[in-house]
Amino acid sequence: MQMHEGIVQDIKKGNRDAFRNLYDEYAGYAIRTAKAITRNDELAKDAVQEAFIRVYRNISSYDPKLSFSAWFYRILVNECNRLLNKEKKMVPTDTSLMENTSQLIERSKESVADIYGIIQHMADLYRIPLLLKYIKGFSEKEIAEILNLNQNTVKSRLFNGRKLLRNQLNWRENEYGPNGRTS
């Protein structure tokens, strides 16, 4: 979504109401995204707050011809990762999982209780594109812009992530039944 030139101009002039409108429009999904990425409400709060402050202070560098959503979410995701790094709580991206998907499934079997848990146990290279796709409905092109990745890379990560998810759901349903309870 492109940002209307008038809103950008108003925010550049320091118009609080214009910025509040922008906040109201973007905060809901931004909070959901940050909560899902950081897995921590306090970190999510800090990340969203800092992302909006950075948007306000750097609005002059935003090109209104480009997608505002992609620009904003790139700032937000970077901020989530920065805070996670700072907290030393970053889930390491284990590249071995890329080649050994059964390892990921085995690990997940032990501790996940629901679909959200399955996704949160995935490596970040699958987890973050999936969260962006499902929460805000971003396209592959937009996710590529946000994560600064090639679109084909995103396509492949979404494909493999969904495949893992489907396999894991099938396994759970065979093991526990459709409601996730032990038969």
């Binding site: 959901r32 959200y116 929460i135």
Partner: peptide, 8 residues
């Protein structure tokens, strides 16, 4: 499920 878990 994701939206349920991330509701504010």
């Amino acid at each position: 499920e994701i939206l349920d878990h991330t509701e504010d």
